[in-house]
């Protein structure tokens, strides 16, 4: 979340001009790495309330897809194009995927296992 928020803030603070991309790329790489590690650690958990996890994850994903969609709309409306748009979209996609996992995990860890 910190890497995603940092990346979006960094890119957005330069709009409508293009930011130097290396810092955003580093933050994106860190966010992707952490997200994958997150998924791996989650997958390795035994005795977990997966049914509850996926129930909460689905609905949270829907809510955050809407929020990320609105932010993406604002960037498109402001004529953000090219590499900057690709990076912002990827960062938003990570945001959209990350928050539901955090919510679903926090709920499921206190529920009875499947």
């Amino acid at each position: 979340m910190v890497a995603v928020a940092g990346g979006v803030i960094y890119m957005a603070s330069y709009l409508p001009k293009h930011a130097p991309l290396w810092a955003a790329l580093v933050l994106l790489a860190v966010a992707v790495g952490l997200q994958l590690a997150n998924a791996l650690l989650l997958w390795r958990i035994e005795n977990f309330a997966w049914a509850r996890f996926f129930q909460v994850w689905r609905w949270s994903l829907l809510a955050y897809a809407l929020i990320a969609g609105m932010i993406e709309f604002a960037f498109l409306y402001d004529h953000t194009r090219g590499t900057a748009l690709v990076l912002l979209t990827l960062l938003l996609a990570l945001f959209m995927l990350n928050v539901p996992v955090l919510i679903a995990f926090t709920v499921a860890r206190f529920q009875a296992t499947d």
């Binding site: 909460v56 955090l102 919510i103």
Partner: peptide, 12 residues
């Protein structure tokens, strides 16, 4: 990342 997950978990 910190408060909203707790909020939902408390409700459950």
């Amino acid at each position: 990342a910190y408060l909203e997950p707790a909020n939902v978990a408390v409700l459950f």
